[in-house]
């Protein structure tokens, strides 16, 4: 939940249009939907990394999951868990 909130807050601050509530929001392909652009994604990556003390690998960033809001939250959950362990 903590990570979902973090991601939603990021899009609330930076996205061109708003992210729907609930599951609909999680299913959004944020780049395809034009919520953020290529510059935005670079900001997003560094924001999440510094907020959570994690590092995305190139594989994480180019994975299928990374492209949707829900998938992204899943990746944050996994990386944060392994960096805490």
């Amino acid at each position: 939940m903590k990570h979902e909130q973090l991601v939603r807050e990021f899009f609330a601050r930076n996205a061109a249009s708003s992210l729907p509530e609930g599951q609909d929001g999680l299913d959004v392909y944020y780049l395809d939907a034009g919520l953020i652009d290529s510059f935005g994604i670079v900001t997003m990556i560094s924001d999440f990394e510094s907020a959570l003390g994690i590092t995305f690998t190139a594989e994480d960033m180019q994975s299928y999951e990374f492209q949707t809001v829900g998938g992204l939250i899943g990746i944050l959950d996994r990386l944060a868990a392994s960096s805490a362990a």
């Binding site: 395809d32 290529s38 994604i41």
Partner: peptide, 12 residues
């Protein structure tokens, strides 16, 4: 079909 422009920065 892979020899097309990338759709965005994450497109591999």
């Amino acid at each position: 079909k892979r020899f097309k422009p990338k759709r965005n920065l994450l497109d591999r």
